[in-house]
Design a protein around this nucleic acid. Sequence first.
DNA 1: TTTATGTACCCAAAGGTTTGCGTAAAGTCA
DNA 2: TGACTTTACGCAAACCTTTGGGTACATAAA
Lengths: 338, 338
Amino acid sequence: MTNQRDPTLQMLAQHLGIHVSTVSRVLNGSDQEAAKAASAKSIARIKALAEEWEYRPNPHAISLRKSRSNLIGVIVPRISDLVLAFIYEGIEQTALDHSYFTFVTNSYNDPQTQLKQIRTAQRRRVDGLILGDAHMDAAMRPPLSTLRMPFVLVNRRSGTLPSVTCNDYLGGCLAAEHLLQQGHTCIGIVAGLSFTSTGQERAAGFIDTCRERGVHIPPDYCMECSFDTAAGHATAARLLTLRPQPSAIFAVNDFGAIGAMGAVRAASLRVGPDIAVVGFNDTPLAAELPVPLTSIRSPLHEMGAKSMELLLSLLQGEYVESIRLQPEIIIRASSLGK
Amino acid sequence: MTNQRDPTLQMLAQHLGIHVSTVSRVLNGSDQEAAKAASAKSIARIKALAEEWEYRPNPHAISLRKSRSNLIGVIVPRISDLVLAFIYEGIEQTALDHSYFTFVTNSYNDPQTQLKQIRTAQRRRVDGLILGDAHMDAAMRPPLSTLRMPFVLVNRRSGTLPSVTCNDYLGGCLAAEHLLQQGHTCIGIVAGLSFTSTGQERAAGFIDTCRERGVHIPPDYCMECSFDTAAGHATAARLLTLRPQPSAIFAVNDFGAIGAMGAVRAASLRVGPDIAVVGFNDTPLAAELPVPLTSIRSPLHEMGAKSMELLLSLLQGEYVESIRLQPEIIIRASSLGK
DNA sequence: TTTATGTACCCAAAGGTTTGCGTAAAGTCA
DNA sequence: TGACTTTACGCAAACCTTTGGGTACATAAA
């Protein structure tokens, strides 16, 4: 019976001389329902044949009939940003565990593109969305509340929309406490994009903590920039031209911090002894850099997993609360004097 | 007419008093077919209403009817390996341009897992597969030829299976030529996993070129290891304990090279003046590292895009040839003496 | 006038499941 | 024996499209 086409319910039913509806109930109802639908003997026969023929239900037929697709759309700024890749791994694994499929696309932080990708996903009839590219500024973002579809934000939050994020403010505090403890009083910030909650809150936590300890960070020592290495380099270079020159730099993400380290070296200064550098996210790179990078660890995989769990709850019609995960500081050579 | 359910062909047809089959032909046949199916006036009415109601065909119904899903499965070792993330971006964009959807999963270089992921994708009724985690060793890999489904390999090749790769051997040659030109005669290799064509061919190109120029690389100076930073660090550390100590290290991927740079520094040596380091792939990080990394650039995005194009051809039933893209060396401070 | 050729449609089956409802036969109880 | 309940299924519609066939009417050619 190893012919070309995959077996269908109908083929099984016909072969067994049992009606297709009965076969259906046995094969995917609960044990209870199965018992109601057929005798023990029939159940055994059906299951045996399904096994032998390696019957796999056609997902398109199921989706059509049930009008749900078991598909989740994931939209991120860029999947080649390591941070998002780790988050996505958490999402994808959790989805698979619950027999959902996910597909992921880039929006490049462009609201226009984000909206387009959302529409494309909806055309594919996804059951829900996970958005990793939220803008804080409600005016700047597509009207998410009009999505008419369950969704959750991940990594970045926005207003009261359901989200799973790191406690970025606290992360900023941790970074500040460490640098203050090292005796720094003049500090520059590579602040990320201002419309992201990540950038905004990490910087805010940092600045507030400094102020509480009597260290003032002037506005021009806190520079907005995008989250890639090149931007981090350029921004840190500008920070280093300020007078008085900062003795430490806090970058709100590791890629930015790596760029900053490059800028420090390009200015013939040493990372650590001359200029302390602290990053954020503790990507696996951080520990292995030529000068190991002090970084705030955020639980990326867990963040992705939790966001998927939240969405699953939402799909069940349950009420959910946003989640904030705890960061932790990992101190390495880049922020320690000689 | 803004009610809850999305409009269907039938709803349009009923509203217009035109048969659903006619509406179908007008809406997705060519202009030719449309003209055959209905009068100019009817065509206009149909299109107008479809527009007004924002009609979107139900992909599940289409898939069921046509028994094709417009879905492509992509399997990679890890999407959080930057190299694969860039390749995937190329795949995904090209797919979207041809109105295909892709979804991606990790196989962690485990043949067992790979097979499982392939089966899962097939259960979703994908039209084709792109595999980024091929094993060279036919015995070690799932029997890809029995897939009964179009597929193409990307990044790594295996036997004569259709693939899109970088000319890794040539890349290895370029790296060797550069280091030889710098006067190095004792060189260590962080060689990657031996069952991957990438690791194997890059190392082979390097070693062969050295031999041609009279520089012998003993087997114990070429160490296998996985492609992450931590492994690169550990392996480079071992290379540095060899006597005579190598004055240069070629790592077959950038993450490995970054780890190696860490090891060099941990041994109180300077990257560049003391130990030259060369990587592979020229990920955006390379240029921005504290010591900028010399690396062989492989066109990752293009590789992904081309692999998708190849698969599309295969889906058309066309015959295809494997593609090898040209690498290029980007020289930076990490391989230059003082 | 007959025959051929379009034009502008409609019909109905098919694709694979799910699910509310119906029913014949067997068993239970008084 | 009659009434009633289980047991073990079967029936058919529904989900939304696509597509290989018509058909009825009109116009044109022979």
